[in-house]
Design a protein around this nucleic acid. Structure first.
Length: 581
RNA sequence: GCACCCGUAGCUCAGCUGGAUAGAGCGCUGCCCUCCGAAGGCAGAGGUCGCGCGUUCGAAUCGCGCCGGGUGCACCA
């Protein structure tokens, strides 16, 4: 139940009543009518802008509409008062029982608290973490992996039918480089000196691949020409790299539903089929691209190529799908891949890319738009860079890869829960500073700790209550008399709790899981304040031994807070802590 | 030269798709433990929301133009 949605429905119903009574004209558009928490709690429990939004189309003064609407709304038993304020805001004060309903809901739904049907089972494909299968995941990939997984979790919670998908870039030249690099490690395993020339991958993670190759081939490939082994080694080493990547993802708690191989698009007619589809729509032609404006790239020359008319779908220039020698460009299999996703019946597509792929967004959207006749929206989320620090100092070195920091280096140091939460404390398109030392710090400026601390504290209080012989099970708490919660801080916390279902839907609509992290921090903050109140005012302590009814009501509230935290953390893929150590 | 992202308190960032007096953490100042976890809480100081026009009853939010920072810009992936 989303209380805000419920009240909005009430507002809309009464607007219609005003229409039938002739107070308001017919045919008004209610799209911009909103019911939200007021900025200042003094204004009331909820506010609606209906009068101001409708004033102009209805050709009436906002206050006149507000007055008429206020009278109607006040007739509903749920509404205690409806006051017009300012230019035409309508401030509503609601029956507290309505708010307490949210507590009961939390207690009865557990970690499903806030689960929404908003998505209505719409099939969404979230593709993320798709890095080249040429090595382990590094920090940059980690952010994309966490973001994608959390977004998928969020959409699932919001009622979508979600598929988590990984696109294996195993079709391009980078896989040849991988095979050659592995070959050198294979020579090394056979006691020879590896020649890791500049263009090859230097990482130690290929040493086990070399050893595995020796295991399989002995020394039979030594001194053989590339044509003999390249094909086999490509497959062998990408398989091993994918195992590595899968285990990296597992260390982070990410499980994919589908691994889609780029290679499977070649020689199977799939690329051709996708381009035929575009061709049939008149979007493929042979032509020569204009040189880019400004300074020319070195060695630029006019070339006739097969082009996709992406400009018809919002791109800035048309894009080549074939090189001048007739090979596919990297764009061609990507088109085919997205064509495949459309064919598989997804209603919405989401791609999570690194920020360095920003230039790729328009053409990919153009392709999906063309392939799906504008029926399947593609949202591309770009994840900005992660800057790693340790105690304020830039953290750069990796023992295993040499040049960059690996996902493992981070997860091994701070654990998957902390890694995930911190990665979500920024909007995806904002850069992120990640301090490995601060991440483990147990203080207020570490949001993970602060939220976990609130959850653990509730747990601790409930344990204490149990030890004191109080039945603090969820069913017992559900039947407590919540109207005993009268203190402003208790009501404020209840209302914060009531925002959860609404916040979740907003986060789901905007594809912004970070909103959950921020909400949990705010919720934790309000809880900590209430808990502290007990120190200043002893009769505000949760457990009142001489008043079991009051105790139960308070325990119900804080248990509901813990439930919301657990639900939110669950979406983000973080395990709620029962105690802090 | 073009495209995309960003510009909010000294620092790091939120800001609920246009609402009321713009928020949080850190840092700074001052308070609060005869303990349900002080690993915390309360209060104060601190802002021309990069700049300028425009749309609107109403703009940090939308549009346009600048300024500043980042990223990417022909067959590489």
């Amino acid at each position: 139940m989303n209380l805000f949605a419920e009240i909005k429905t009430l507002v809309l119903e009464n607007l219609n009543v005003l229409v039938t009574e002739g107070v308001l004209p017919d045919g008004l558009n209610y799209a911009n009518v909103a019911v939200e928490p007021p900025r200042d709690a003094l204004h009331g429990d909820m506010a609606t802008n209906a009068a101001m939004v409708l004033a102009k189309p209805a050709k009436m003064k906002p206050r006149d509409i507000a007055d008429a609407l206020a009278v109607k709304l006040a007739e509903d038993p749920r509404v205690l008062s409806a006051d017009v304020a300012g230019p035409g805001f309508l401030n509503l004060r609601l029956d507290p029982a309505l708010w307490f309903g949210i507590v009961i809901e939390a207690l009865s739904n557990g970690t499903d608290f806030g689960r929404s049907k908003m998505g209505a089972g719409v099939k969404v494909n979230v593709e993320f973490a798709s890095c080249n299968p040429t090595g382990p995941l590094h920090v940059g990939h980690t952010r994309g992996a966490v973001f994608g997984d959390a977004l998928a979790g969020l959409l699932d919670f919001a009622g979508y039918d979600v598929t988590r998908e990984y696109y294996i870039n195993d079709g391009g030249a980078q896989v040849d480089v991988l095979a050659r690099s592995a070959y050198e490690r294979y020579r090394e395993a056979n006691g020879l000196e590896p020649e890791i020339v500049e263009d090859l991958y230097p990482g130690d993670y290929l040493i086990p691949v070399g050893e595995a190759l020796k295991e399989k081939y002995g020394d039979s490939l030594i001194d053989q020409s590339e044509s003999v082994w390249l094909e086999d080694l490509r497959e062998f080493s990408t398989d091993m790299m994918m195992d590595l990547i899968r285990s990296d993802l597992a260390a982070l708690g990410v499980t994919m539903d589908v691994f889609f191989s780029e290679k499977s698009l070649y020689g199977t007619g799939k690329i051709e089929a996708a381009l035929d589809d575009l061709d049939a729509k008149g979007l493929i032609y042979e032509g020569v691209l204009e040189p880019p404006k400004g300074k020319l790239p070195e060695g630029w020359e006019a070339r006739e190529q097969t082009l996709f008319k992406s400009t018809e779908h919002g791109d800035d220039v048309d894009r080549p799908v074939k090189k001048s020698d007739g090979d596919w460009t990297y764009f061609a299999p990507d088109i085919a891949y997205h064509y495949d996703k459309v064919q598989r019946g997804f209603d919405e597509l989401i791609d999570v890319f690194g920020a360095d792929h920003g230039g790729y967004v328009k053409r990919m959207k153009a392709a999906v738009s063309a392939l799906s006749d504008s029926k399947v929206p593609l949202d591309i989320k770009l994840c900005q860079l992660v800057k790693l620090y340790k105690n304020g100092e830039p953290f750069k070195m990796s023992k295993r890869a040499g040049t960059f920091v690996l996902l493992r280096d981070v997860v091994d140091q701070v654990g998957p829960d902390v890694t995930r939460f911190i990665m979500l404390t920024r909007k995806n398109d904002a850069p992120l500073d990640f301090d490995l030392a601060k991440a483990l710090e147990q203080s207020k400026d570490n949001p993970v700790f602060y939220v976990q601390y609130a959850h653990a504290r509730v747990n601790s209080v409930l344990t204490k209550a149990g030890n004191a012989g109080i039945d603090a099970t969820d069913t017992a708490l559900s039947s407590s008399d919540l109207t005993l919660l009268k203190h402003p801080a208790e009501l404020a916390l209840t209302q914060k709790l009531a925002e959860w279902p609404r916040l979740l839907e907003t986060a789901g609509k905007t594809h912004e899981p970070h909103r959950i992290a921020f909400y949990l921090y705010e919720l934790a903050s309000e809880f900590h304040a209430l808990q502290h109140l007990g120190k200043v005012e002893p009769d505000m302590r949760f457990i009142q031994t001489d008043c079991p009814e009051q105790t139960l009501a308070r325990l119900a509230l804080i248990r509901a807070v813990a439930v919301a935290i657990a639900a939110g953390l669950g979406i983000l893929g973080v395990t709620p802590a029962k105690e802090m150590r």
